[in-house]
Design a protein around this nucleic acid. Structure first.
Lengths: 200, 200
DNA sequence: CTTCTAATCTTGCCACTGTCAAGATAGGAG
DNA sequence: CTCCTATCTTGACAGTGGCAAGATTAGAAG
């Protein structure tokens, strides 16, 4: 379905975009492990060597998808913060929930964003988006802590990032509740101890 | 180097073990992405189809390695707890450091242990080790919290797990300090806010 | 409008992978 | 000693990513 353009024209018209969309769909269906450049070409209705003219390698296509994912990710965090009124802590908590929700809604893309291919965060575009995300979270943490030394804000922000990132990856990889007692909403349960993280 | 047994005997003698060792070395050198069953066979000095008699598939070999990794992991956590005298909190902190240290020392294996192959934690052996690890951490958390409802202990333990797991994966995947200010020991910096996690 | 250049796409190939099937070898029970 | 069975080898197959050479066409240059 979707963008399987099967026109009779020799030239596709917008192959690059079609490949990206096909790849995202393929990732959603089969996951990263069975992602294939040739399958993307097939879904775009094009020969197996056509992608080479738009992406230097398969990893390049995935890098593009990771970059787009990170940009959507930053937008989602921003929206969560903007839509939430109340204390700075409430905004931070909303961002945390948005963080995990994004990961759960886009498992393969989230995986690409962090452990993407071999060298992570190398594309300048990806690095820009990652820095923006970090800045958002760091600012939210600073707003909660009030006037503090920059070092301390950074340390706390890193801890918050680790907590939400760990929650997301555990949910994705292991269906987190390893222990016997599983809550109806394990994510909320974990994130409820987020405030405690921001005290000396 | 290592276990490249090149004897002239038609039968290897201990191929299964040799394959596991070769695979672990290969993972250390090249990482999971360029892991290859045929390369393992080559390093064990054996033909490309020989491994099939010991492992049903390539994923099976990796599952074996993940299981062994998880067992070493559980042992490392236990040692960290046993070697540490002092408060329950000190023991928990030591386990957290050991957790991250293990991940950093065995990046590929750690990756296998959690996001291993396709279906994670499916082997019974792996599941046993995972449950043991969870129990260790959960007990340590319970010792810190004192007499509490089981639900609360589970929630807090999950938060602790998420924090250390997130720290480990971020260190592995992104060289964590995304922000500008990087500490000399980012892990210690993050784990220093672990105590705050255990307060209502 | 014609021509021609450069981008795009196809076909065909290579080395490599995991897995299967069939034959070679040898260790160990009887 | 014989024979059975586990182990290992050889050879094949479909599939992959990447490269090279040719076909096709869009769009600029004249």
């Amino acid at each position: 379905m979707a963008v399987r353009k099967q026109s009779k024209t020799y030239h596709h018209g917008d192959l690059r975009e079609a490949l990206v969309l096909a790849a995202i769909e393929l990732l959603k269906e089969k996951g990263l492990s069975s992602f294939t450049l040739r399958e993307c070409a097939r879904r775009a209705g094009v020969s197996h060597a056509a992608p080479a003219h738009h992406f230097a390698s398969a990893a390049d296509l995935l890098a593009e998808i990771a970059a787009r994912g990170f940009e959507r990710f930053v937008a989602a965090l921003g929206e969560a913060a903007d839509e939430t009124e109340g204390t700075a802590m409430a905004r931070l908590a909303a961002m945390g929930r948005a963080y995990v929700a994004f990961a759960l809604a886009n498992p393969a893309v989230y995986g690409l964003m962090f452990r993407g291919g071999a060298n992570p965060l190398q594309s300048p575009r990806l690095k820009t988006a990652a820095t923006a995300a970090w800045q958002q979270l760091s600012d939210a943490v600073a707003a909660v802590l009030g006037p503090k030394r920059k070092d301390e804000v950074n340390a706390k922000a890193a801890a918050v990032w680790a907590l939400v990132h760990g929650t997301a990856t555990l949910m994705l990889d292991c269906k987190l509740p390893l222990g016997p007692a599983r809550s109806s909403d394990p994510v909320a349960q974990i994130l409820s101890s987020l405030p405690g993280l921001l005290r000396p």
